[in-house]
């Protein structure tokens, strides 16, 4: 840790700690989940960056969406994202969450995740290798440093937009709006 780092720690410990302690909800959405076990176990060892998987969204600050998102899964993704405490970051993994990928014309796969929840970064590829995850994480560090990883703020600001998109897709969401003032 160089001197620069230490001064940053004193300036904003919360931000630095959020960078170096990613507790991740690995959402087993699609085929991308197959890249996660090697990346958190002996071969690539994500724990050296402070990244460990946690079981519930309440304890997490990073949401990794691995692969295509079917409509049914999207409901659970939204719920999980809303239950994560702020600050929270979302990283979509693989080409499918970006534009649908090979499922671009599927009847039950959404093509653009960004319409439903805010995404802070994408790791493109089909499939990206585990190294790509780490590169993605270092990019996320930079974004956090520059305060550009502000997905959760966007969600709060544009909640009407997101909720409208969600309700357009699902007639019945099953839970009340997250932010009260953003009712439709």
């Amino acid at each position: 840790m160089d001197r620069n780092q230490i001064s940053k720690w004193f300036k904003n410990p919360g931000k630095m700690a959020n960078k170096y302690s990613f507790h991740v909800v690995y959402f087993c959405t699609g085929c991308g989940i197959i890249e996660i076990p090697p990346s958190i176990t002996t071969r690539w060892d994500a724990e050296r960056f402070g990244i460990i998987p946690v079981a519930t969204p309440r304890q997490a600050n990073l949401f990794l969406i691995t692969g295509y998102v079917s409509t049914k899964t999207l409901k659970a993704i939204i719920r999980t994202y809303e239950q994560m405490p702020e600050p929270k970051y979302t990283v979509a993994f693989g080409s499918c969450p970006i534009n649908g990928g090979m499922y671009y014309d599927s009847y039950n796969t959404i093509t653009s995740l960004d319409k439903y929840i805010p995404v802070d970064g994408y790791i493109a590829g089909c499939m990206p290798r585990p190294e790509a995850i780490f590169i993605g994480v270092t990019h996320l560090w930079k974004l956090i440093d520059m305060d550009k990883a502000d997905g959760y703020k966007r969600y709060r600001r544009d909640y009407k937009f997101y909720r409208a998109n969600q309700e357009q897709l699902f007639k019945e969401l099953g839970w009340p709006p997250l932010f009260k003032d953003a009712s439709l």
Binding site: P57, R58, A76, T80, Q83, L173, G174, W175
Partner: peptide, 10 residues
């Protein structure tokens, strides 16, 4: 109590 962790379900 309804805002509770249930693996993403309501």
């Amino acid at each position: 109590q309804y805002d509770n962790y249930a693996a993403g379900a309501a």
